[in-house]
Amino acid sequence: MENTRRFRFLPMPMHSVLLFMVWLLLNNTLALGHLLLAAFLALAIPLLVAPLQHTQPSVRRPLLAVKQVLLVLGDIVKANIEVAILVMGPLSRMKPGFVAVPLDIERELPITLLASTISLTPGTVSCELSKDRRFLYIHALNLVDEEELITTIKERYEAPLKEIFGC
């Protein structure tokens, strides 16, 4: 709610910036007419859809968020090389397994981001979230050490998310 009350004519500031950029990217231009049209859409669409939104925790530490995005992008490239080597190598060496990761974050948006990060990074895919939102069930392609995997996920991906959203 804190976000919706702050600006009356700009109910969703982040979404407005996003809409502005997506319109310019779609038309692949920086012409004046498209800049004006993008600004109009970025103002009008959030005003129309603002009543529909769920309140989500807002980003408290934008700089840390940028750093985390870069870290995850680097990890995606590393993950791909690892998975490629595993896929092309002998299959009998692989030890697949399911792991339940206990969660500290409770809100929907951070959990969604964490699950997406897990799916895109080394050898793990998120499968299901427990009903009380306290465990995330994941599948690992090559499960060497469960405890180590859980600590890596919690320290590398969950702790920064917790700090970014301040919850």
Partner: peptide, 29 residues
């Protein structure tokens, strides 16, 4: 990509897809 992977994994759990015998952590599954 992660969203559709998650949805397909859920669908796979629901239709009781066969798992490889060497899989560990079946109780989590």
């Amino acid at each position: 990509a992660p969203v559709s992977a998650h949805m397909m994994a859920k669908a796979g759990l629901h239709v009781k897809t066969r798992v490889e015998d060497s899989t560990r952590g079946l109780e989590v599954r």
